[in-house]
């Protein structure tokens, strides 16, 4: 056990004295998680709603694809984007490899499946009568979407939190595309990998502690929301 305490003893001062390198990594991580999740929501929520509510042909295939995309290894996504963005490739002209921008792009793409698949599932789990009744009483598309989002809000928020969670924890795609460059485009997770690789365990532990604190805050938020959701359901059950 001595090693853990030794490393913790060295790590905690780094956190509490506000090491500027560490603060920079935290700030970049927050930016990446926030921007990537927001972008994934802007793109993914309409798709998720359309998948969950739509009555078009082939929607079952689309839903299955959305679910399957959750299983896509980030390292593969990273490789694919690397090949796509590398200088001789079709999108090479954008000069994205080893930049900060590419980290935002990679995390957005990785967050997208969570937003699409989980929001579609949340909307599909709504009582079918409610949405059909709204349609039959003449609700327009926007009214339907607003109703579905509001009713499925707990599931949708869970989707957003899952997206935030991956953009905080992910290392592979970020490392491949960004190059994991010290002091430039490291997130907390990829910085941990970097510090361990170099044998700087105290720094790695400090970064890992900050990372897990962020995840705990997120999970706490989700837990509170789920409690509220269950509370409503339990009250309903006891009344019926």
């Amino acid at each position: 056990m001595r090693l853990i305490w030794d490393e913790l003893g060295k790590a905690l001062p780094l956190i509490f004295h506000g090491n500027p390198q560490l603060l920079a990594v935290i700030w970049f991580t927050l930016q990446v998680a926030g921007v990537a999740t927001a972008a994934a929501c802007v793109i993914g929520l309409p798709i998720g709603l359309a998948l969950g509510l739509g009555r078009f042909r082939g929607r079952n295939v689309c839903r299955a694809l959305a679910n399957a995309s959750l299983a896509l290894p980030p390292v593969l996504v990273g490789v694919f984007l690397f090949v796509l963005f590398s200088p001789p490739a079709p999108l090479g002209f954008m000069h994205l490899i080893y930049t900060r921008r590419v980290v935002f792009i990679a995390q957005t793409i990785l967050a997208l499946p969570y937003v699409v698949a989980l929001s579609a599932a949340a909307v599909q789990a709504l009582p079918p009568g409610l949405l059909s009744q709204a349609r039959l009483l003449g609700a327009g598309r926007l009214q339907l979407w607003a109703l579905a989002l509001r009713e499925a809000r707990i599931g949708v928020i869970a989707a957003v939190i899952a997206a935030l969670g991956t953009s905080l924890s992910e290392v592979a795609a970020v490392t491949i595309l960004g190059g994991n460059i010290y002091g430039y485009n490291q997130t907390l997770a990829s910085a941990t990998l970097y510090e361990v690789g170099g044998g700087y365990y105290a720094d790695a532990v400090a970064i890992a502690i900050v990372l897990i604190a962020m995840i705990l805050v997120l999970m706490g938020g989700l837990g509170v929301l789920q409690q509220q959701g269950n509370g409503i359901r339990m009250r309903f059950r006891s009344a019926a």
């Binding site: 009582p127 079918p128 009568g129 409610l130 059909s132 009744q133 709204a134 039959l136 009483l137 003449g138 609700a139 327009g140 009214q143 109703l147 509001r150 009713e151 409503i232």
Partner: peptide, 29 residues
């Protein structure tokens, strides 16, 4: 004239009873 159908399953939105009726009126226009 306009035809309204009330489905067999009385699924309501998670809000107050009054807002549920108000919501239906919004759908109806």
């Amino acid at each position: 004239g306009r035809v309204a159908i009330a489905l067999q399953s009385p699924d309501l939105a998670r809000r107050s009873v009054l807002s549920n009726v108000v919501l239906a009126l919004a759908w109806w226009g």
